[in-house]
Simulated assay, not measured.
Amino acid sequence: MDVSPDSETPLGRLVKSLPERLAERVLEDVMTGRLKPGDRLKEELLAQTHAVSRATVREALIALARQGYVVRIPRSGARIAEFSRRDLDDLFELRAALLATAAERYTRQAGPDQKAELEVLVADLERMAATIDTSPQDFASQSVRIQTFLTERCGNNHLPDMYKRLAGMGMWQLIRGQASSFLTPAGRAESAADWRRLADRVSAADPEGAGRAARLLLEHSAVRVRQHFDEVVRSGPRP
């Protein structure tokens, strides 16, 4: 029997391997702060903790190293990667370029229905910004939802994964789920205004304007994250 490209993915391919699941557990520990930048990852301890073989641990750490979350040092083992202020700037620069490309491409091909979808997402974000007790995490999730919407519908099949990886690298290491770009009502209001500017350019069928708006959005976000990053550095390690 012929299998069409639209057929369901075989069940066997939906089951994640042990190394993949262990990598997710380690990354979850980083996100929640149980593992911190520079912490050493001991193969034997990870194997005992998660009841897996050391070969499984090695595979998981290799995968995390490829994604930039772990640094493997010869004769020293693996450690949670540390990012500097320079890394932060570099990541935002790349994210801005990718989001601008996505916004431009999306604007060129978006019809009325697609523009309406983006409008709904941005309007929801604006309502969240106008609500004083909106949590930074909820606001950040909505912002990520809009970014994912643009990148996945821009028509470039390679861009979504690249953007997701860059966004994840900045988020997990530097702010560990605290959504520092949106900690204050003023920050959330600025972000919502930036998204409104971008949505308006999409609605006006202005690809170049949408691209500029996307860059400005991430430039503003980078400023807020840098401020928080510098504050954390000045205050020193948390107890």
Rank of each mutant, 00 (worst) to 15 (best):
R34L: 06
E20K: 09
R13E: 12
G33P: 04
V3P: 05
P10A: 11
P19I: 06
D2K: 14
S17D: 12
L35I: 01
E8C: 11
D6C: 14
L11I: 14
S17W: 02
K36P: 02
K36D: 05
S7H: 15
S7R: 12
P10W: 15
G33Q: 05
R21E: 06
P5I: 00
L22K: 04
L11Y: 10
R13G: 08
D2N: 15
P19H: 07
L27A: 07
R13W: 10
M31E: 03
L14P: 07
G33R: 02
T32N: 13
L22C: 01
V26G: 01
T32M: 03
E20F: 08
V26H: 02
L35H: 01
D2E: 13
P19R: 04
K16W: 09
R25N: 05
R21K: 07
T32A: 07
T32E: 12
E24Y: 10
P10F: 09
D29S: 07
E24Q: 10
K16F: 03
R34K: 11
T9A: 12
V30F: 04
D29I: 03
S4V: 04
L22H: 05
S17V: 07
L35D: 00
V30M: 11
V26C: 06
G33H: 04
A23E: 02
T9F: 08
K36Y: 01
D6E: 10
